[in-house]
Write a protein that binds this DNA or RNA. Structure first.
Lengths: 334, 334
DNA sequence: GTGAAAGCGCTAACAA
DNA sequence: TTGTTAGCGCTTTCAC
């Protein structure tokens, strides 16, 4: 940062004004090819790079976006981050990481960073808006989650249909006693996946016995716990639809500890298709979300908003899911 | 960003100068308690937040740091990111994500971002410096990897000792035919882990037969491939020391496909202790690095450098590792 | 096509 | 303790 050449230095050597240098560097049509070339050569020679703070102050932009998640430590977000990063970088934007850990103060803080000019836009994956309100006209795209009535553009998958498809797969295999370990209802995503489960069961005319719907928190340990509860029942299930892969790993782990074979004794379906689910044993049958594409799409949407002014989206953008059928599901033991 | 109150607005209403407001907001001792309170109240009332671009330009700081990795999609970095983010945030810094994908142009680009004032410092986890040189006086901390002769401060673990300990565990179990799947040598980290393997073998008077040292690339598939090569040998190994968990998952996967039991037929030790390694089947014996602490330490070091001026570190900062012995290792079949 | 001049919002040196 | 002044480096009118 010290002794860096500035526009003025180039201007002096090129024998032009600072304004002309600025224009040449910006590829403006208001400069002769010759002047531009002279400036460009000099810039390279001096190893000139514009000072971003000065430019940001002047242009009232930061050329960076905030990516806000509940937990940066969660592997689920990786591919989304990757998609966002790639798309952002192509457009000349940097990605600032935001991590709320469900703390309302931090959630508000990231919105304030938008106002401060820290970032030009935000991709929000927390599913929550700060209490104060008045945020809906900010350049924010909600991804993965659903913030009802916010008026913000959304990029997501159809959690109800995807969950339903997963349960229908179990039913098609012949399972009748199917339990569900949900995420932290009443959050919309968890409610929707549970809704898909209920729909599939009802369609098939299957009852959901007491104790067959358990509430988890998306973490490994809660998968283990819920699994213990389920298999303490008088009539335990023969199949599990688990609201995410991480809890599904927990259930498989726990089932193994209890001496039950997967999929021989119990079938398990997860949701997310984490990177390692195919290397898991047994390879996990799970719903795959197009995570990288969710990231790319959300960032593309944000870029549109940032360039074209405010946009309103009546309908959420829904990306397709795929049920990956692997080794953790099989017909029930006759 | 539009119609935001600025310092001048507060100054006018408070009947003081902009400088006084700035001082009050900065908690300077040069303001009477009364004036400060008046300014603070007004700031809250107007919902004032300083414009960061203006402040950055003036102070020549950005209050953000760059975290540069080879692949943002790699789950290995998650806990490090988490540690960095937490420490950075406590100190008022934001974290910008950098992703090089081993592209030299991008590696250079992130160094340039430092010069541009995009970030004040950088935590580098790529193990590489741009070709041009002259970077060693920049506020950069190297974490995880080793850049020899760079003169930059390092935060790392003792890969040689850790690898050696892992192999000694296999030897103690009674294994004699132990193979190694390395990372992408000749990168220092991979070389060091291989070195630990060789040391342990030599100490125990064990030969390393031809074909027992294979080069992987840290990805799942290369674990599978190397595993196939190893078990096509006339005398295949009874134990594997694999340079990271991801490849270790691949080997276990492949062994299972070949009908060999882990740890009954073959023992496998990994390196990293990824979050899911304990839920893996069999639970993976692996070397655990204190990833979150590596992140925290690196960021703390960077903060020291950023506040205290330049610091030179003769010795790398070495954090301890632990060998987690789980279900993937056992004595060889008599 | 180019230059002069203004100013983005803030902080810090200097004066009072 | 406070105000005045200058300026961080850039972009963008406006005038020529």
């Amino acid at each position: 940062m010290r002794d860096r050449p500035k526009i003025k230095d180039i201007a002096e050597r090129a024998g032009v004004s600072a304004a002309t240098v600025s224009r040449a560097l910006a590829d403006s049509a208001l400069v002769t090819a010759e002047t531009r070339q002279r400036v460009l050569d000099l810039a390279r020679e001096l190893n000139y790079r514009p000072n971003v703070s000065a430019r940001n102050l002047r242009t009232r932009k930061s050329m960076s976006v905030l990516l806000v998640v509940r937990d940066v430590g969660n592997p689920f977000y990786l591919d989304i981050l990757k998609g966002v990063e790639a798309t952002a970088r192509e457009a000349g934007y940097s990605v600032l990481m935001g991590n709320t850990e469900n703390d309302p103060a931090r959630e508000t803080e990231y919105f304030n960073m938008l106002r401060d000019g820290h970032a030009d836009g935000m991709i929000l994956m927390t599913g929550k808006l700060p209490p104060a309100g008045g945020w809906s006209h900010l350049p924010v795209v909600v991804a993965l989650e659903m913030i009802e009535g916010s008026g913000l553009p959304h990029v997501q998958v159809d959690n109800i249909a995807a969950a339903r498809g997963a349960v229908e797969h179990l039913i098609a295999l012949g399972h009748r006693r199917i339990a569900h370990i949900s995420g932290p209802v009443p959050e919309p995503m968890s409610v929707r996946r549970r809704e898909g489960y209920r729909l599939a069961m009802r369609e098939a005319g299957l009852a959901i016995p007491d104790g067959y719907e358990l509430r988890g928190d998306f973490l490994l340990e809660s998968g283990e716990q819920c699994c213990r509860s389920l298999f303490a029942l008088a009539e335990p299930p023969t199949a599990l639809f688990v609201a995410n892969d991480e809890m599904a790993y927990g259930t498989v782990h726990e089932l193994r500890r209890m001496g039950r074979d997967v999929p021989g004794d119990v079938s398990v379906v997860g949701f997310d298709d984490l990177y390692l689910s195919k290397a898991f044993y047994p390879a996990l049958t799970t719903v795959s979300q197009p995570r990288a594409e969710i990231g790319r799409t959300a960032m593309t949407l944000l870029l549109t908003i940032l360039s074209g002014g405010s946009v309103r989206w009546a309908e959420p953008l829904v990306l397709p899911t795929v049920l990956n059928i692997r080794g953790s599901t099989a017909p029930p033991r006759s």
